[in-house]
Write a protein that binds this DNA or RNA. Structure first.
Length: 787
DNA sequence: CCAAGGCCGGTTTTT
DNA sequence: CCGGCCTTGG
């Protein structure tokens, strides 16, 4: 009947038999699990909800459950569907299952992210939604460019109605599994009453491009399942057990997808924590997890509440904060660890001082000033609400030479040069990929401007063929003139040549990639480029080519890249991590800094404006996630003043600070200073009394004294008065080329050039910068610079 | 086809 | 206040 009965996957060893033999043996993997974890592993049949608080050994329970299913012969590895949200989580699970099973079992083909699994499914059944199985996956950038074209075609001013906004609207609809036909009338008014039409036009355009966006991966598969019960039933039978990680983050489309697949046997195990739902803004529905027992009657609910990560005080503080939320499923985390240090709270004068203090503190902790052995920088993290907060820390750490790593900057594959190179690869393997072709038709500049492109586009539309084919036709017909003619011919011929190499299974795709970048002139473009980031970009291109080695061909690689966000860089040196709270979910660090706990920043004003109490609760969960990342030391801070869009604003301490239970907190801020703190003006009136009491003895608290003595050791007098002083001691100083100098922000460097009062300086850590002379001192006077 | 200037906007982000 | 994007002018 169909050619996918065997699901295209090797079955590997006769697992059924092997498993039966193993089932008689003891199950060593169950040892060391606590009773709740055991229950979650052993409740194999029927729906199971595993409510796993932060740090309660969720991944261990989940992987053990998979091993148990395989080991008892309930399912073969390729009959278990295990879904995660991130590639990282998928990889970790794969590794851990592999480790527990030993090397005998081949990897599990259906363990992966929602998106990766959907790609696999959609490739098999693409024709059912009008696609070919070699469809391209567009990323956000492609998506925006496509929408811009549609807006232009529809004569819509994309100033007032930006493509980004439309992309957001469409994404939201796709997250809810709404096709253009099923968008409810209540949403008809969105995007200037034209959202639905544009959505339909966009989907039609994607089909002609043989392309999908991320949302489509799920949406199309759900559509297929809904419209082709025969296909659905096969998968329902095939996937004997389903496991879902981070269930609280599922959106409606993912939820429907899971319900459809689990519809037969209902052997679905969802793992999640309602208190860690922080992705509501991108369509996640906490409701999915809150409703689980209603959706799957008779479900077994297991709560994992023993925390193996954090000390008592840290858990207490986190629990106190999260208790402010309504409508929780309710868990009580406990630990048998020591009380440890209390959560430390400190207020600062401004954001720069906060960065300075954290930098000093990190150095002190690294050296072990606290009387213990010292903590590796790898074990410390600064978790911020918004990425712009990172800059203050980067600036400061650059100055003092504290090694750090920022997680979540522009990702490798989002960089311009990588996307350009990949566009060449995409056209090579998929000549219909018009978006990719448009991207590189004039990159590097080859004299093919708007005019030439427009005539190609018109020809393509008229003939109903892709752009590359249209370009070839126009050239043959001699209809392209001037500079564009020769260059375009070279490009078109190039693609023909490269495509034939790519089609040859014996050809080496890594060499092909190098040839493409060489012959197209792309590498040369960057070699000629004199901008400071050109060498870095060439480096990235090299890395890209190197990454190709791990794949069989270009197609395989492109697919991988489209779905992966790996940011592999060499990590030899110890570094302190700076990342957003969102990015930190699932991670843990011995020492965590949580700066910027101020009203408006955290909780974010915008979230509260847009989503009211619901938004505030999500922010509170974010606070909970932040605190629970810490194993031993958690330091929360806030500043009384902060520059917001260039304006100095005075800030109020976050309401979450008032929610921290007093008994788990040590206040380092002296009362009255820095205009804030537990007990300063601006706090919620209800908490004032309690807070005043808390801060009354702040001066005598061990933390405060420790801080004082440390600052004195370093020769810092009063912590702050000096900070505002301008470095004008050298206002009249002159510098000469080659002189070694010091800058408060960028550290040490050498003067490369002098133009009036501006200096061209090559800094040791911050690279080359143009700096006004009065902000710089001679290197031997660096000690005069007040910190 | 490119460079300079004006204008708007400015959370979180995986796939 | 800073940076990205788009427009305009050469």
């Amino acid at each position: 009947m169909s050619d996918y009965d065997d699901f295209g996957e090797p079955l590997g060893a006769p697992i059924g038999l092997a498993a039966r033999a193993m089932a008689a043996r003891p199950m060593p993997y169950l040892e060391g699990l606590n009773p709740a974890q055991c229950a979650a592993v052993e409740a194999m049949d029927g729906p199971v909800l595993m409510l796993a608080g932060a740090g309660t050994g969720k991944t261990r329970a989940l992987t053990t459950r998979i091993v148990h299913l395989l080991n008892t012969g309930r399912a073969r590895p390729n009959e278990v569907l295990a879904v995660t949200f991130t590639n990282k989580a998928a990889r970790e699970m794969k590794n851990r299952v592999g480790q527990m099973l030993g090397e005998t079992v081949e990897g599990m083909p259906w363990l992966g992210t929602f998106h990766a699994i959907c790609v696999k499914l959609l490739r098999r059944h693409a024709e059912l939604v009008g696609l070919k199985s070699n469809f391209t996956i567009l990323d956000t950038d492609d998506q925006i460019r496509l929408l811009k074209q549609l807006l232009r075609a529809a004569n819509i001013d994309d100033k007032r109605w930006p493509a980004r906004m439309l992309a957001g609207v469409i994404d939201n609809w796709k997250n809810r599994a709404w096709t253009p036909e099923s968008v409810p009338a209540s949403d008809a008014g969105l995007f200037n009453n034209q959202g639905m039409e544009l959505y339909a036009a966009y989907q039609a355009r994607l089909l002609t491009l043989n392309a999908v966006d991320f949302g489509d991966l799920l949406l199309h598969v759900v559509t297929i399942f809904q419209q082709h019960s025969d296909v659905l039933e096969q998968y329902q039978r095939w996937f004997k057990y389903i496991l879902v990680d981070e269930y609280q983050d599922t959106n409606v489309a993912q939820y429907l997808w899971l319900r459809l697949l689990a519809g037969g046997h209902k052997n679905i195990c969802c793992v999640g924590d309602d208190d860690q739902s922080i992705y509501g803004w991108r369509g996640a529905e906490v409701g999915n997890i809150l409703r689980f027992e209603a959706d799957f009657p008779g479900a077994t609910v297991v709560k994992l509440e023993q925390n193996y990560r954090s000390t008592h005080h840290i858990l207490g503080a986190a629990s106190g904060v999260i208790a402010g939320n309504e409508g929780r499923l309710g868990k009580t985390l406990w630990t048998d660890k020591t009380c440890g240090d209390k959560v430390r709270l400190i207020g600062h004068w401004d954001g720069e001082e906060e960065a300075r203090w954290i930098g000093d503190e990190a150095e002190a902790m690294q050296l072990g000033t606290r009387g213990d052995a010292g903590i590796s920088l790898d074990d410390m993290a600064i978790l911020v609400r918004a990425s712009h907060q990172m800059r203050a820390f980067e600036d400061r750490f650059l100055t003092i030479g504290l090694p750090y790593r920022v997680i979540g900057g522009p990702r490798f594959y989002e960089r311009m040069e990588i996307r350009d190179a990949m566009a060449y690869f995409r056209v090579t393997v998929q000549p219909e990929d018009d978006l990719a072709f448009e991207r590189i038709i004039n990159t590097p500049r080859r004299g093919v401007g708007d005019k030439a492109l427009q005539s190609i586009q018109m020809a393509a539309r008229a003939a109903g063929v892709p752009l590359l084919a249209a370009a070839r036709k126009l050239l043959e017909a001699g209809e392209i003139k001037g500079k564009a003619k020769g260059a375009l011919q070279v490009l078109v011929d190039g693609f023909a040549r490269w495509a034939s190499v790519a089609a040859d299974p014996d050809a080496n795709h890594v060499e092909l990639a190098e040839v493409i970048l060489e012959e197209s002139g792309y590498t040369e473009m960057w070699l000629k480029d004199k901008s400071p980031d050109a060498p870095g970009r060439l480096e990235n291109l090299k890395e890209l080519v190197k990454a190709l080695e791990q794949f069989e061909n270009l197609q395989g690689f492109l697919e991988h890249i489209a779905l992966i966000m790996d940011n592999a860089s060499d990590e030899d040196e110890e570094k302190l991590t700076i990342m957003t709270l969102h990015g930190a979910k699932g991670l843990e660090f011995p020492a965590v800094f949580l700066p910027g706990w101020e009203e408006g920043l955290f909780p974010s004003q915008r979230t509260m404006d847009e989503s009211g109490v619901k938004g505030l609760e999500e922010e509170r969960r974010l606070a909970y996630v932040g605190i629970t990342r810490a194993e031993a030391l958690c330091t929360i801070s806030f500043a009384a003043n902060r520059r917001v869009y260039g304006q100095w604003q005075s800030q109020l301490p976050s309401r979450f600070i008032d929610e921290l239970p007093e008994k788990h907190v040590e206040v380092l801020t002296p009362p009255g200073l820095y205009g804030g703190g537990y007990g300063a003006a601006g706090m919620a009136p209800s908490a004032t009394m309690e807070a005043k009491a808390a801060s009354a003895d702040a001066y005598s608290s061990p933390g405060w004294r420790r801080m004082q003595s440390r600052q004195q050791e370093r020769g810092f007098g009063a912590p702050r008065e000096a900070s505002k002083a301008v470095i004008d001691v050298t206002a009249n100083a002159s510098f000469t080329q080659g002189e070694r100098v010091f800058h408060q922000k960028f550290g040490y460097g050498y003067v490369m050039g002098v133009e009036g009062d501006k200096l061209d300086i090559e800094f040791e850590r911050a690279g080359s910068k143009k700096v006004v002379a009065r902000f710089v001192v001679a290197a031997d006077r660096a000690d005069d610079v007040p910190f």
